[in-house]
Design a protein around this nucleic acid. Structure first.
Lengths: 195, 195
DNA sequence: ACCGTAGCACTAACCGTTACGGTTTTGAAT
DNA sequence: ATTCAAAACCGTAACGGTTAGTGCTACGGT
């Protein structure tokens, strides 16, 4: 499966990247709402239908790497050291993600997102999807036998932490503050005392 | 301002109700996606532009009473008995809201919402708006001097409780389970010991 | 009785998105 | 090498939500 990636897949990935790159450039230059799909397609030299075969919507052009985000989260759960407690592992990952998207280089993009209702809405439902994925990963961990509701709840809280910290004046401090609350919430649900 | 509502305002409210009622009826009869805006407008005997002067979007037709929801939440905070603790008051209100929208009579509407991605997305960003309103109410309460981050966090958690409980197998039990977690998270943030 | 405002109407467009039908490229099987 | 099916791509036309733009009418305050 991860053998030599054939020419086809490389070309496809190249097209995808070309589209996403062109779109982001145009959006940042002239504003998300001011640039139409037909224009992005023309500039990237592909047909409109091709664009939509790579991206499900206009908004998706902006959140090209959202699957990375999702994978890093589940990885933080499934790939942590044996017997390492869940919450600190998640805290570390969220801290890293928050740092990443509050970096100066990312500022213009997030400003664009915050200014467009369509993009905000898209990001919101994206987060919910991520929370659901994270909940599944938590529920699947045999070390912590949680109820379905508790798993989903903690997952939501963690995603909330990301979202709130990103908007806070001091993002890193906010992560710490919110995770103290999550830690407390988590301990209530722990049936056994595992140090 | 709340004196005799003039004829004009009554007519406006009547038009609004007629549009919303017609829309909901058509949506439930034939499916949200299968009914177009032009059709709703024709059936309600108004122009398309009139419809959009009463409702900001097609989705808003379905969530006609979302401001009630918002007000009940803030009321639960600002209108509670003096010295009554915050979290139990919110728990009661959420419990009532969940009961209300998991009632049999509301089932067809929520089934329609769950089946339509557009409506789901709309509800999600509505919830975020409600969380923000609730956060403001919590932050404004002089009895509980919280940080901005803590207020917003608790508000999100409470809205999460509503959303998760509504989808749970046993909604009422889910509210209790999640609010035990919220209570723990809340206590971490309380600077003073108030009973 | 008069005026400003607000609700409403109609047309025509804009824009994201999709259906459709056709062409080229690619990887594999003969 | 040749052949073939799948998959990527193309271009057009349409559909449906949404928004000007332009008026008209009726209400409520003066």
């Amino acid at each position: 499966m991860t053998v030599p990636p054939g020419r086809r897949e490389r070309k496809k990935a190249a097209t995808r990247q070309k589209i996403a790159g062109t779109a982001l450039r145009l959006f940042l230059e002239r504003g998300y709402d001011a640039v139409g799909i037909r224009e992005v397609a023309a500039e990237a030299d592909v047909a409109v239908t091709t664009l939509f075969s790579h991206f499900a919507s206009k908004e998706a052009l902006v959140f090209e790497q959202d699957e990375d985000f999702e994978q890093r989260l589940t990885q933080a759960v499934t790939g942590r050291a044996p017997h390492e407690p869940l919450i600190p592992a998640l805290r570390r990952e969220i801290q890293a993600l928050v740092r990443h998207c509050t970096a100066d280089s990312a500022a213009p993009i997030w400003r664009m997102i915050d200014e467009s209702p369509a993009l905000r809405k898209y990001e919101e439902s994206m987060r919910l999807r991520h929370a659901e994925t994270l909940a599944t990963a938590i529920a699947a961990d045999p070390e912590l036998s949680q109820t379905a509701t508790a798993s989903r709840t903690i997952a939501r809280f963690v995603i909330d932490a990301y979202s709130l910290a990103r908007e806070a004046a001091d993002p890193e401090a906010a992560v710490d503050e919110i995770f103290r609350m999550i830690e407390a919430a988590w301990e209530v649900t722990c049936p056994s005392r595992r140090a």
